[in-house]
Structure formats: C-alpha cells, structure tokens
C-alpha cells in the first residue's frame, strides 16, 4: 500500500504508467521485467542506505542513474521516457 503521504493522484498516475508500460511491451516482456528490476533495485538500495546511514560510503542508485538506465531500456519510446521523467524529483 502507498505511504499515507502519497496522494491518490500520484498513486493513480503510477498505476496507469506501470500499466501503460506493461501493455506497450506485451511482445517484449523482458523489457517490462527489466524496468521493474531497475525500480526494485533502486528501492532496495535506498533502504540499505537508510539502514547503514551512509556508513559504507555508498549513496545507492541515484535518480539520475535510474533515469539513464530507463532511458537506455526505452530507446525509441520517447513518450514513455518523458512520462517517466515526470515522476523524478529532479526532472
């Protein structure tokens, strides 16, 4: 479930976006899968950083890195990438 601070609008846009990608890559499930993995890895690293409070000198995957990974995954799908950028804090 979403964090309480997440508004329903943000949650709904995220659901629609994930569905859009899923449908766009119906013939290439490995691309959709890779997209999920990128987000999953990002989230996992963020949690690890939080737990270690940066003691290991790592800041985890940055949002810039997430964006470039997704950009190389969504080559030729500029609309998806532009929409993805709208979720990123520094886009």
């Amino acid at each position: 479930p979403p964090a309480p601070e997440t508004s329903p609008v943000e949650f709904d846009s995220a659901i629609s976006y994930v569905n859009k990608i899923k449908n766009r890559f119906l013939d290439h499930p490995e691309i959709y899968r890779a997209f999920l993995e990128i987000l999953h890895t990002y989230q996992k690293e963020q949690l690890e950083v939080k737990e270690s409070r940066g003691n290991r000198g790592s800041s985890g995957m940055t949002e810039d890195e997430v964006f470039s990974k997704v950009a190389s995954l969504f080559k030729g799908q500029e609309d998806l990438l532009a929409e993805f950028g709208q979720f990123l804090p520094d886009a």
Partner: peptide, 27 residues
C-alpha cells in the same frame, strides 16, 4: 481492475514515492 504481481505493485509504490518527493521538493 488490474492484474498486478507483487513486483508490479512495488514499481507503483516506488514511482508514487518519487512523485511525492518531487511534489515535496517543489512546494
């Protein structure tokens, strides 16, 4: 209705958290 796997839901969660931080940083 959506047929989401746990990994799908996790992606939705990550994206909405990013959007929330974006909103927070803009206000």
């Amino acid at each position: 209705s959506y047929d989401f796997t746990p990994l799908d839901s996790s992606a939705v969660y990550v994206l909405s958290s990013m959007a929330r931080r974006r909103r927070a940083s803009q206000s």
